Simulated scan of single mutants.
Amino acid sequence: MGEADHLRHHPDVIPIYAKRKETIERVFADAKEKHGMRWITLRGLKKFSMQAMFTFAAINLKKMATWTWQGPNLQTGNPSI
C-alpha cells in the first residue's frame, strides 16, 4: 500500500489522477445522485444487476446524445464532453 501511495504523488502520475476525477469518478457520482443508485430498490443480485446495467446504459446513451449534438472537437479529434 505504501508503494501505491508513493506512486500517486509522483509528478508524472498527478495529471492522470486529475483526469480520473473528471471522467471515471464523475460517472459513479452521477449514477448515485441522478439515477437512484445510492440505494438498492430491487431485491436479489440478478434484479439489481439488471437495474445497474440499464442505469449505466442510460448514462452512456446520454453521453452519446451529447456528443452527437455538440459534434467532434476539431482541435483534438475527440468528442466534446
Rank of each mutant, 00 (worst) to 15 (best):
M1V: 12
M1S: 11
M1P: 06
G2Y: 05
G2W: 02
E3N: 13
A4C: 13
D5I: 11
L7V: 05
H9R: 12
H9Y: 08
H10G: 03
P11T: 04
P11A: 07
P11V: 06
D12S: 12
V13K: 02
V13C: 04
V13M: 10
I14H: 02
I14W: 00
I14E: 04
I14A: 02
I14D: 02
P15D: 00
P15T: 00
Y17A: 01
Y17W: 11
A18S: 15
K19W: 01
R20Y: 02
R20N: 01
R20Q: 07
K21R: 13
K21F: 03
E22M: 13
T23Q: 03
T23G: 03
T23R: 10
T23N: 10
T23P: 00
I24R: 04
V27H: 05
V27A: 06
V27Q: 04
V27I: 14
F28A: 03
F28I: 06
F28T: 07
A29C: 05
D30R: 03
D30S: 04
A31N: 00
A31W: 00
A31E: 01
A31Q: 00
K32C: 14
K32H: 15
K32L: 07
E33F: 07
K34S: 03
K34Y: 05
K34F: 05
K34N: 12
H35E: 08
G36Q: 02
G36T: 01
W39M: 08
I40D: 11
I40L: 10
I40W: 10
T41M: 09
T41W: 05
L42C: 12
L42D: 08
L42H: 12
R43S: 14
R43H: 09
R43W: 08
R43D: 14
R43I: 03
G44Y: 01
G44C: 05
L45D: 08
L45M: 08
K46S: 05
K47N: 11
K47R: 12
F48E: 03
F48L: 13
F48N: 12
S49F: 03
S49K: 15
M50F: 11
M50G: 04
M50N: 12
Q51S: 07
Q51R: 11
Q51D: 12
A52V: 15
A52P: 00
M53N: 06
F54E: 10
F54D: 02
T55N: 02
T55R: 02
T55D: 00
T55P: 01
T55K: 01
F56N: 01
A57F: 15
A58C: 08
A58E: 05
N60R: 07
N60Q: 13
N60F: 06
N60Y: 07
L61K: 03
L61R: 07
L61Y: 05
K62G: 06
K62N: 09
K62P: 00
K63E: 11
K63R: 15
K63I: 10
M64N: 07
M64V: 13
A65M: 07
A65I: 10
A65W: 14
T66L: 15
T66F: 07
W67C: 04
W67R: 09
T68H: 08
G71M: 03
G71E: 02
P72K: 13
P72Q: 06
N73L: 07
N73I: 10
L74R: 14
Q75L: 15
T76E: 02
G77H: 06
N78W: 13
N78I: 14
P79K: 03
S80P: 02
S80Y: 07
I81V: 14
I81S: 11
I81L: 13
I81Q: 06
